[in-house]
Design a binder for these strands. Sequence first.
DNA 1: AGATATAGTCAACTAGCTTGACCATATGAA
DNA 2: TTCATATGGTCAAGCTAGTTGACTATATCT
Lengths: 161, 161
Amino acid sequence: MPPSPDFTEARPGQVPLLLAVTYRAMTDRFHALLAERGREPLRPAHGYTFRYLASHPHATTVDLAAHLGVTKQATSKAVAELEDWGYVERRPHTTDKRAQVLALTTRGREYLELADELWTTVEGQLADVIGTERLAALDRDLRTYIAAVHADQEVSFRPVW
Amino acid sequence: MPPSPDFTEARPGQVPLLLAVTYRAMTDRFHALLAERGREPLRPAHGYTFRYLASHPHATTVDLAAHLGVTKQATSKAVAELEDWGYVERRPHTTDKRAQVLALTTRGREYLELADELWTTVEGQLADVIGTERLAALDRDLRTYIAAVHADQEVSFRPVW
DNA sequence: AGATATAGTCAACTAGCTTGACCATATGAA
DNA sequence: TTCATATGGTCAAGCTAGTTGACTATATCT
């Protein structure tokens, strides 16, 4: 009795499940690498937060919430935690006295570099199995699909379980 | 300022995120189709439960828990709910007086058929964009990776966010 | 027979969200 | 300029889906 689904042969409609399993397998490997470096148990959402802040230097909590697809209250809590851990800073907005500007600290930027390195390693393990050409095709195909879906509806990246 | 990550060009280490986004987009489409049919808001985990029970006719709660990768207590609660909704039955085990055998009801089997149909539709929308050959290659590549990872560690299909 | 393992339940707790109410500040229209 | 409305952020309460721990009844092993 196999403790996991049987993936030895193709079945119509199975691709979504395969995507979920693959994503989970890769995050497991990512976290294993992270643990080897003795880092705190940061989740993918934290990394995605850092990446957003790195590319949007004047982002507020509300901006980030919209990006993550959760409420501003949930985002506010998460940001407070990341601030406690020294990854993120909150600074007063220059013109809007209600708002705060979120910014990565040096530590936050360092984490982002490390995460990029580790995700690339994990991605490389996929390339080891299927080959670099297949990996490139996979990357392209997924981005094509996302672009097509994105055309008529907003797409989140928070998986539903 | 784009409200979602920018996927217009490739970046090393981005594939895991692409997998997550694609999975989420497909589950969104699945749920939209489900809503059109006026079904209850069943989540992927419920469908995976049904599929497991369909292929493991003598499964117990503990078996199911191992399959889903959560505790038996959490599984027990979910099964009770699915029983209330009429998808699953609990019957006494024939030889083990401690155990209960889980079984799909007719309604449960019907849902599974519908889900297969809808997931296949969603998968077909991916095929529409990337082509059937690329879809087949994607399917094969993902199963290859899962088999490789599966060799040395157990793989779950519950995404980490 | 007795020690140990296992199926399932109950209860208390937690993480990570949600909704709703609220304050302070911005913005737009009269 | 003033006032109505919109917006950024916080606080508090509640929900969902999970967790750990303790326990009972039954199985299994020695």
